[in-house]
Structure formats: C-alpha cells, structure tokens
Amino acid sequence: MSDDPPRPEPFTSRTAPAALEDLRQRLRATRWPDSPEEAGWSLGTDLDYLRELVAYWADGFDWPAQEAALARLPRFRVPLGGLGIHFVHARAVAPTGPVLPLVLGHGWPDSFWRYTKVVPLLTDPGAHGADPADAFDVVVPDMPGYGFSDRPTGAALDSIAVAGLWAELMGVLGYSRFGAAGGDIGSHVSRYLALDHPDRVVAVHRTDAGVPVFTGDPADLAPEERAWLDDAVAWGGTEGAYAAMHRTKPQTAAVGLNDSPAGLAAWIVEKLRAWSDCDGDVERSFTKDEILTNLTLYWFTGTIGSSMRMYRANAAIPLTQLARRVEVPSGFALFPGDIVRPPRAWLERTTNVVRVTEPARGGHFAAFEEPELYAEELRAFFRPYRAAMSR
C-alpha cells in the first residue's frame, strides 16, 4: 500500500455526440404544463420564458463551443477522502510581490462555473488594468456531488467536512497558508476553513452570512438585527420552498429534475433570476449561453440530486458549531441584489470583522454577475495579508 500523497491529474470533459443528441430530443419532447394567464414569474418560473430558453437549448445553444472554452481553464482531478475532486488551479501571471494562494468556494445551484469569469482577473490583474502585485494563485474546487467531482455514494458531506477536504487539497498543492473566499454554501465552507484551520487561513472573505440562526433572547439583539431576522423568516415563507425540499425530501425532486432537462431549467433559472441583481430580467445578469452552460453542466454530470442532498447534511450541523466565533480576519462584500443581507452588528457577533463593503451592483452570484467588482473586492481585502506569505 502506497503512502505517496495524492497526485492531481489534468482533466478535460468531453461530451459524446449521442449524449448531446439525447438531451436535444428530450428538450424537443417536453410535455409542457398549463399556466394561468398573466402568471409571469409570480408562481415560479415564467412558462413563456422557459419555452424560449428550452427551444434555444435544443436548437441554438452550442455546447461543444462552451465545453471547449471551459477546457481552456487549467483543470484537474485528485483523490481526496475517497472521492475524486475536480478543481481549477490557475497560477499567478507575472507577479511582482508575494503571491497569495486563494481557494474559492461555490454554492448551489452552480459549481466551478461561478468563478470562470473572475479567474483571469485574479491571476493576471496587470492584464486587466490592476496592480500586478495583487496576483493570486487561484484554486476553485467542485464540492463533492457538484460539477465534475464525484458524487458520494453514502450520506452527503456537510460544509465542515468539505472545509477539511479543501484544507487537504491546498496542502496537496503545496500551500501551507492561504486565503479563502466564497458565497452561498461556499461562504459556509470558507467559515469552517477559518474555524478549523486558523493556523493556515490568513484571512477569509464572504459575500453573505448564510441563513440566520439565533437561539438567545431577542432583547439582546440590536434593532437592525431583529429586523433582519424578521426579514429572513418572511423570505423563507415566500421563497424557501426549494430549500425545504432539499433539506427533507431531495430524492423525490431529483427523479424529475434528473430526467427532464426542462424541469431542471425551471428549478434553476428561477433562482438565477430571483437572486441576481437583474431587476426581474434574468438576461440582464446572465446571457442564455451562460445560463445554459450552468444547466448543461448539471445535466451531463447528473448532479442535481447529489447537490441538493448537501442541504440535508448542513441542516444537521449542531447549533454549537454555528455559534463558534471566527477569529481569523474576515471581510464581507454585501452586494445589493443578494438575499437577506445581514447588518454589521450581526456579523460581529460571531466573526472578527475587519472590513464590510456594499458594492454598487451585483447579487448572489457576484463573481459571475460583476466579475470586475468582485475581483477588486478580493484584491483590496487580501492586500494587507500578502506579507504573511513571505514569512
């Protein structure tokens, strides 16, 4: 039995023509539901828009071209914890100072796709009008059950376990110290990286604080915190049905979503619209090709069910873990189109907050919606911590 460390291997995905033709046939054969007149997006995904999107997916979308574009990223797979983990590893270009390794955490409903626009801005800032001294080595892993990483055959991993895998991955890549950043579940994972590996994580940046959990006396909260908790409860009542399904009966939904590409599109595109800074027009934030690249990744990897099951795993994380205080220096960029944005008073309850900003544009998928703004947020936040890499 070998004790050699795991070795990353280059990875490129190639879709068989027969699989692509099967997808197109399924799209053309969609059995459409009825919809009340003038329903629009009020009951969920707008049927008229979905028909338009599905028609383009079947007969206009060039998946081979998108797959070729993704192949230009430096992508790898490595065995970790009994699973094959897919990741992007892009090294800094022409740095003029200490290079900070940075692991970026995605969420649902996405994968490494979330960061495809921002990777070159972070690795080669000098080519994009920024200071070359702000260059990062960027690592973007797909969580187990997402994208091109393996799907766990048993119980899904929670964010704590994924954080442990990312710490191991960064060690395999030769990084003893690094920064962490993320949004959505990736925010959660980044938090646990800071909590469980404070000797290795120099700083952590997040775009949200997750769904609030508070078991104390509401009288101890500031007025803005109480208002935020009320807003979060109201949001859950009107927008949280998907999460309740993911936490409780994900396998029921997975059967239909894994069999019907139109159903998969309906499940995901509604969230892209609702959570982005698009003023109700999803294509203000994402082109059809961008939406369909994300959807097609889910379709060909068959990961919609495994991605949803992570919600169930995270719902079982004990409250004692959620209440732990992050002492690693932390920053937050609260984009205006994101959901249930926390007040600073809440962030400071369990986090060593050193920076909070409110960028002018962007939503839940800020790295994809506004890559330049997001890249500048990371450059500015991590700049003071680069000196740690030379020690």
Rank of each mutant, 00 (worst) to 15 (best):
D3G: 12
D4L: 13
D4C: 07
P10C: 10
F11Y: 14
F11G: 08
S13A: 15
P17D: 12
D22S: 11
P33G: 12
P33W: 09
D34W: 03
E38S: 14
G44C: 14
T45F: 10
L47D: 13
E52Y: 10
L53E: 08
Q66P: 03
A68E: 15
L70K: 01
P74N: 11
P79Q: 13
P101D: 13
W108I: 03
L121F: 06
L122W: 05
D134P: 00
D142P: 00
M143Y: 07
M143A: 13
D150Y: 00
G154P: 09
L165M: 13
W166Q: 01
E168K: 01
G179R: 00
A181E: 03
D184L: 03
S187E: 11
S187P: 07
A194R: 01
R206Q: 13
V211P: 05
P218H: 10
A219Y: 05
L221S: 07
A222S: 14
Y242A: 05
R247A: 15
G256W: 08
L257N: 08
L257G: 08
D259Q: 09
I268D: 07
R273N: 11
A274Y: 01
W275H: 11
D279C: 07
T287D: 14
I291H: 05
N294E: 11
T296D: 10
T296S: 15
G302V: 08
R309N: 12
R312I: 06
N314W: 04
I317E: 10
A323F: 14
P329Q: 08
E348V: 01
R355P: 10
P359W: 01
R361N: 14
A366E: 04
E369M: 02
L373F: 03
F381C: 01
F382S: 02
R386I: 09
R386A: 13
R386Q: 11
